[in-house]
């Protein structure tokens, strides 16, 4: 294949990575921004989304699209409910102390991972794409489902932006993010806001897991890479900045896609890590984060 079409293919693959990454990282950024909690278990919510998508797709009868649509709704809701329970049972009891919650979410990571291994097993299972449509370009054919992933992630992120900027709940979350004590003195139940935020963040990760599972396979260790990349994205974009997260996800996703195709995936990770190191040295608050 000539360089031009090969570059186009690499960019399209990168766009898919960026879209899924943006969803997962938006959840991580939201949780840190509002709650100041670094959620090390975030990748496991992504993994649970993928596993639950496989479960739902397996039990729902009919064509793959029916099971997939059901998974798109059920998996984020169930994972969000699990996250809400984890918030009430663990994080709230630690008074959302930043250091203690890091340790607690590491524990949560292992609990979810080992529970999944026990219940689901070590195998990787495929989930069929909801449709098999392919777009035929002059140089190569491309999966219509992958384009759907980009579109779906874009729609969800736009909805998230509208939710945060245009709704009462989003306003309450942003006020809590700025000053939780003052928010309390205006009648905002901060504990409820935190529970909702943690559930929403986990739900976004689970949604990313559902979207990716027809491309990758559902497996209990699949949460590691998205966690690492999500941290890279939110550090570069600025912890707590949704806009920064989206831009950084695009940069990292596209560079990951192109470098992986032209060279190796390992080189892509090395460059992303170097980029994080440079950001931490020269602009520790991230490209769009507020200085502490």
């Amino acid at each position: 294949m000539a360089f031009g079409p090969f570059l186009l293919l690499a960019l399209m693959e990168g766009l898919v990575t960026a879209a899924v990454l943006a969803l997962a990282a938006a959840g991580l950024s939201l949780v840190f921004g509002v709650m100041r909690v670094v959620n090390v278990a975030h990748g496991e919510f992504y993994m649970l989304g993928a596993i639950l998508a496989w479960v739902v797709a397996s039990v729902v009868p009919g064509p793959p699209a029916v099971g997939f649509v059901a998974a798109l709704v059920i998996a984020p809701v169930l994972v969000g409910a699990l996250a809400a329970a984890a918030d009430g049972l663990i994080l709230k009891r630690l008074h959302y102390d930043p250091e203690a919650t890091i340790v607690a979410t590491i524990g949560l990571l292992y609990m979810i991972q080992q529970a999944t291994l026990s219940l689901y097993g070590p195998n990787a299972n495929p989930v069929p794409a909801p449709f098999e449509w392919r777009i035929q370009l002059p140089w190569f054919g491309y999966s219509g489902y992958k384009l759907f992933v980009v579109l779906a992630a874009g729609v969800v992120l736009l909805a998230l932006w509208i939710f945060m900027r245009r709704t009462k709940a989003g306003l309450i979350m942003r006020a809590t993010q700025v000053d939780r004590t003052t928010a309390r003195s205006f009648g905002i139940n901060v504990d409820l806001v935190y529970m909702g935020t943690f559930a929403l963040g986990a739900g976004l990760a689970a949604l990313a897991g559902v979207l990716i599972v027809p491309i990758q396979q559902a497996q209990y260790l699949m949460g590691g890479d998205p966690l690492l990349l999500s941290f890279i994205v939110v550090i570069i974009g600025g912890l707590g900045s949704l806009r920064g997260t989206l831009i950084a996800a695009l940069v990292i996703g596209l560079s990951d896609g192109t470098i992986s195709m032209f060279f190796t995936p390992t080189l892509a990770k090395i460059i992303a890590t170097l980029l994080v190191a440079m950001v931490l040295v020269f602009r520790p608050q991230g490209l769009f984060g507020a200085r502490a």
Binding site: K168, L171, I172, R174, A175, V178, D179, T181, T182, A183, S185, F186, G187, I188
Partner: peptide
């Protein structure tokens, strides 16, 4: 209602949004 020392406004929010938080309850 409480006006704290040092104002403690929600700085990144607009004036209208700060007032909306005040009127939430």
């Amino acid at each position: 209602a409480y006006v704290p020392q040092g104002r403690r406004l929600f700085g990144p929010l607009t004036v209208a949004e700060n007032l909306a938080i005040g009127g939430l309850v």
